[in-house]
């Protein structure tokens, strides 16, 4: 049995190697006049741009994907970096040195603790929250930044959009809806999210407009959405979001609401971007007009009633006088 697996593994590596060689030969054949020097990231992408590049992993879950889409990487927040900024040593020869490439060898904080870096404080906060999260509490070392985030495609989007929400939610559903990826971390089985969220009205609308972490992470400072809470502590009160002081303003919309809270006369105007949330997006102008009209109506009715009553009394007095 072990022998068969080992054979299969050897075949797989051989196949991948041949594919890489073939790709190289084809590339060279097409550029006989001038061959570009393989400097910088191009040299890495010679192999790693192949979408099928992978290696058999010792961890459960089978093959470890080693492919990086060059275009996606180019558009990511790390797109300006050289691969060797993070993958420093041990990549000169093939196969690369295991101690450099294994899971856990690389850490975001290797760079993001640099005091010169703009995001230093944010990462210190993230680290603090991440350590408290239910993922780390239950899975320990098995769970790292890379369990959710792919640094080769990560983009920092401050503007709230359905695309941002969709990609943020995909980070959660990749494991929580897929048995295969989940198996790499735990033997636990989760019920489908439609079932666990059966109590939530308009499920599709909620999932389109809010992120899982907006309800499932702590709102305590520093509130970086990385302290994933046990499900018993998730936000389940409708009015936490559906109110004028919606908690979403401190999380999902925290970058936007500062500027546009009063835009167009709408309180929490920023929430109006692509969603209407009962209770949190009321129109302050309309409310003021309503109150004024209501007051005027009551005053009008009171005055009218009083005049009627006075008229009646006067007529009764006149009648008595006549009598």
């Amino acid at each position: 049995m072990k022998r068969t697996a080992s054979l299969a593994s050897t075949h797989l590596i051989l196949f991948l190697l041949l594919t890489v060689l073939l790709a190289n030969v084809m590339a060279l054949y097409g550029q006989t006049a001038e061959v570009a020097p393989r400097s910088g990231n191009d040299a890495c992408f010679r192999c790693h741009a192949l979408s099928t590049l992978g290696i058999r992993d010792t961890a459960p879950g089978g093959i470890r994907n080693l492919s990086v889409a060059p275009q996606e990487f180019g558009h990511s927040i790390h797109g300006d970096l050289q691969c060797t900024h993070c993958h420093e040593q041990g990549y000169d020869a093939w196969p690369h040195a295991q101690e450099r490439t294994g899971v856990g060898a690389l850490r975001c904080t290797n760079c993001h603790q640099d005091p010169k870096l703009e995001l230093k404080e944010l990462f210190a906060d993230i680290q603090q929250e991440f350590a408290k999260s239910v993922h780390v509490q239950k899975l320990g070392e098995k769970f790292s930044c890379f369990s959710c985030h792919d640094p080769h495609s990560f983009r920092r989007e401050q503007e709230v959009s359905t695309r941002k929400i969709e990609s943020a939610n995909a980070l959660c559903t990749d494991c929580h809806e897929s048995g295969q990826k989940l198996a790499a971390f735990t033997e636990r089985k989760f019920a489908p999210i439609e079932v666990t969220h059966a109590w939530l009205p308009n499920q599709d609308l909620h999932w389109e407009h809010v992120r899982c972490v907006d309800c499932h992470t702590s709102y305590e400072a520093p509130n970086t959405s990385h302290n994933v809470l046990p499900k018993s502590q998730a936000v389940t009160k409708c009015e936490s979001c559906h109110s004028q002081n919606s908690v979403l303003l401190a999380k999902l919309y925290k970058y936007e609401h500062r500027e546009s809270r009063q835009r167009m006369g709408f309180l929490n105007g920023t929430l109006l971007n692509d969603a209407y949330i009962i209770g949190s997006t009321r129109n302050s102008v309309l409310d003021a007009v309503s109150f004024a009209l209501f007051g005027l109506t009551l005053v009008g009715i009171g005055g009218h009633g009083l005049l009627r009553w006075m008229g009646k009394k006067k007529r009764e007095a006149a009648k008595e006088e006549d009598a």
Binding site: Q244, S280, R282
Partner: peptide
């Protein structure tokens, strides 16, 4: 619903 943050005065949100 309109003033859901003062819900306790009238009706709970749900």
């Amino acid at each position: 619903l309109h003033y859901s943050d003062t819900g306790s005065l009238l009706m709970p949100f749900d």
